[in-house]
Design a protein around this nucleic acid. Structure first.
Lengths: 210, 210, 210, 210
DNA sequence: TATGAATGAGCCTTCATTCAT
DNA sequence: AATGAATGAAGGCTCATTCAT
């Protein structure tokens, strides 16, 4: 008996998280209502409070579930043996891909959680760090292998990469156009690796004339 | 009489925008209340609705005012005659500086507006484009002057630069640490210009022949 | 214009207090709902919160209004020049009379406020003290005039008198019988003044025999 | 088997009543929740409804248990052979002592039950009457023995005594000071027995003739 | 133009009680 | 007998917005 009950219970919890995921994603945290989530999960309002301590807790559980999935995928993707640039390319592609595949949850995260005062110390933050550490690790490995310059800290490099990707993906996340993941990943990786400046002759007038 | 009245009116509008700016920045859009803004502007609740069609409109006007100031400053900053890298450095420094000087309004913008469905076509978006076009223009000038590579589009480069800066600035915007603008601007500019990868010998066995 | 508005406003406030008075008295604090009070006052729910900070505040204002009326009446009643017993009798009659005239508000006060943790320091407590001090003053005057014994403190005497009256009145306050105020006041006053014990011969066997 | 079951059942019931007693006493009726009581009794929520028809019923059973204990103690205390004043003194002391020993349950009773509309006809009322009849009996015995005046009814005297004690004890019941039971019992008994007024010369000018 | 009283829908949350297991 | 998941009604309170003055 407890087994059936436990399964049923888990089913309800999943239904709630799923419904909340959809409603939060579609309307944003503030505009979403517990009543709507309950209706969508085919559950009473009250039941939500048996499993989640409040609306905000529910949001966080939704994002945790999402993040867990995404972190695992990234770790798996980048784990493969390969050179730095190739692995970076895989990471960029996957990261961009996440914005395409889960644009609404990404938007939810970026707009509701990052800003939140209760973000620090949350499980979400831990997952976020794990996600980020995949790239940091990759960069450090690249440095160790002599593939990456040592002018800048791994952390700075990581911020540049993630920041760039997010900024590029944003219009697609927020709007409705399509993002060519493959092409963009290619360009971004190349750009990041090679920089944007051509070597300059510092003193042109002193340069060798023919 | 009508003159005085018009001046008075403008004064009221300014007071409202200023008050709203402070309250929105301090509390965020949802948590801010019209009543508090009115109180702060020493104006009745109702009057706000004579000049602004609703709460959201007021938010937008606040951000417009902010953006106008910021865009003008950026355009002035980067206008100076100089080489690409120097001008880029100035832009990066200024952009980072904005996050430091107006972190709360920046946070407001990033969390409330970018996500909004009514963002497209708004005056804000126009200002945002103008802000972005400063960098695009700079890059194009760099390309024209042969200082910047032509592998990637100016738009992509621009996204990488802005994205990187925002990502780096974010923890400081949201938290309470201090950001060393000068040092960060230096590193970021260098990183962006030079890339992160060391030149690799593609085919070691086919290496330099005598 | 502000005059009309202010009058109208005061009228609303009075209506709310009156409605709240009736509903609280009839149902008790917990069972009373803001919605019902609003309906009864022909006012919207929200308006109540313009004038009263919360439900509890409304309760206190109701009881303050009641208490102010009652305190003033008592002070006036007992103020008359007369001997101690006569004045005490007037006070007892008036106090009993209050329980009869406003039994529901008395019940409300006794059940909801006296127990409350926020009672101390409230305006209600101040009024309560003022009410009590009428009797304390009367007793002290009686002592000063040599009409009252000095075996017990004025405070103790006061507690005995108020406690006795409340206990006697309670069944009528809570139930639906009628209380004969005049007769009861007479008996209580006599009892309090004269005590209940007959003088006893301590050692009857040693007493003078005829 | 059925015996064990019956014992177990009684144990559960006792545990529930005990838990409810603690929770009601600590938080008051409204603020107490069935869930907390169940948790404390290490019993499921549902089980409570097998033995008690609803929350209010549980409250009444708690107070019955309390009252039974208290009534028995009072009857025993006052049963001893002694003169009226001595026995009254014992009763007063015991009654005051109850407020000190069980102040929270006393408060619960005074605030939740006395006011209740379903009080009449309840077992509680019966117990209350039994409690009161101890004093009534004592007074009647005093009257029969010629120790007590016959000016007032036993019932009135009883109300004065109980009312006085409750009123004196209340601040200690509700607040956190300490009550000196011995001293207070002494003063109250003396006051009640002897009254508060000094004999007055009705017509001073017509005073003692030779 | 300016006020601010008034509205009322809507929200999160609690909890006594029930009932399938 | 016992559980505890589930219900669902109810309630206090907020606040953007309107409109009579």
């Amino acid at each position: 008996m407890p087994v059936i009950s436990a399964e049923r219970m888990q089913g309800r919890i999943d239904a709630i998280v799923e419904a909340a995921s959809a409603v939060f994603a579609a309307k944003g945290y503030e505009a979403a209502s517990i009543a709507e989530i309950a209706r969508r999960a085919e559950v009473s309002d009250g039941l939500i409070y048996r499993y989640f301590s409040n609306k905000r807790d529910l949001l966080y559980r939704v994002l945790e579930a999402f993040y867990e999935r995404v972190v695992a995928a990234l770790e798996k993707e980048v784990a493969k043996d390969a050179g730095f640039e190739e692995r970076l390319h895989a990471l960029v592609r996957r990261h961009l891909g996440n914005f395409v595949a889960d644009r609404e949850l990404c938007r939810l995260f970026l707009s509701e959680v990052r800003v939140a005062s209760d973000y620090k110390g949350s499980t979400i933050q831990t997952l976020n760090r794990r996600y980020a550490s995949v790239l940091t690790g990759l960069i450090e490995a690249g440095i160790a292998a002599g593939e990456v310059k040592t002018d800048a800290s791994a952390r700075l490099i990581r911020d540049v990469i993630f920041g760039a990707i997010e900024h590029i993906a944003w219009p697609y996340v927020n709007g409705d156009g399509k993002l060519d993941v493959e092409a963009t990943a290619q360009s971004v990786t190349a750009l990041i690796c090679g920089g944007i400046c051509l070597p300059q002759q510092k003193n042109p007038e002193e340069a060798p004339r023919t």
